[in-house]
């Protein structure tokens, strides 16, 4: 195509769009250092690092952080096991009900989170299950399965059947093949899926408000601060922590799956 150059207008719109996506987040970082405690005044009247110390000494933040880490770790582990199993089954066999199963897997993220939340809540209510860390984990693992599944199934498709047959021909049993052939090949895809699932669970708030009862994960703590602000700069410090805790796994997932044709985050 002779006119294979982007017009100036398009270039500006595209770069402007990218900036639109990123600048607001940088603002959070700036506000974490502001000396103004009660309003969101811009520009900040002064800069200080005292809020990091204040946040460090707040036990409620530590409790929420600990709960979030616990929930995200267990939910990720469960999702990785269940997601790998289902992706192994779905990767090449065609069987009765395959389409329905794939719909069932994506349903928890295709329907709005508020639906997942209220259904779990009403089910807990009907069955008289008291809210606990496990009720949160139950909800999180459900929508994390699809994330692991997406990453694993793409890798399974790329893996040729020949490798597995060769392993069998050389005398390996199913478990040896799994350990020496399948797992090393799947490794990075599973890791990437697990990291994204962790990031998603660590940050989830919509389903969690329905399944947490009186417990506060870090996002729920933030939500309460947003609705009834107390020390605004402390919220900014926590926002930075949450951002970092989700940003790093995402970046890692990108580098883990970069070489393949599949991509880690295609569709949340």
């Amino acid at each position: 195509m002779p006119s294979e150059r982007a017009s100036l207008g398009l270039k500006i719109a595209a770069i402007g769009g990218l900036l639109f996506l990123h600048l607001p987040i940088l603002l959070i970082f700036l506000y974490a250092f502001t000396t103004e405690e009660r309003t969101y005044a811009f520009p900040p009247p002064g800069l200080t690092t005292e809020w990091f110390g204040v946040a460090w000494r707040r036990p409620d933040i530590w409790e929420a952080l600990w709960l979030s880490l616990k929930v995200a770790s267990v939910a990720t582990l469960l999702a990785m096991i269940l997601g790998t199993l289902v992706s192994a089954a779905m990767s090449r066999t065609s069987f009765f009900g395959r389409e329905q199963i794939s719909l069932l897997i994506i349903l928890p993220i295709a329907l709005p989170g508020v639906i997942t939340g209220i259904s779990l809540r009403s089910a807990f209510g009907v069955m008289d299950i008291p809210f606990s860390t496990w009720t949160i984990i139950l909800g999180h693992a459900t929508f994390c399965i699809v994330i692991v599944y997406n990453n694993a199934v793409a890798r399974f498709r790329r893996l040729s059947v020949g490798v597995l047959e060769a392993s069998a021909d050389l005398g390996a049993n199913a478990f040896q093949t799994f350990w020496h052939v399948l797992l090393p090949n799947l490794g990075t895809a599973l890791l990437a899926g697990g990291m994204l699932a962790f990031a998603l669970s660590f940050d989830e708030v919509i389903v969690t408000t329905f399944t947490a009862g009186q417990q506060a994960t870090l996002p729920i703590w933030m939500l309460e601060e947003l609705i009834r602000p107390r020390q605004r700069p402390v919220t900014n410090v926590v926002a930075m922590i949450v951002f970092a805790a989700t940003f790093l796994p995402i970046l890692a997932a990108y580098y883990l799956t970069r070489t393949g044709s599949e991509t880690a985050g295609a569709g949340k």
Binding site: I28, M222, A239, F247, L251
Partner: peptide
Amino acid sequence: MLPLWSSYLVKVYA
């Protein structure tokens, strides 16, 4: 990809 995956609440807060 980064804004897609990064924290929803942090974005709203920003």
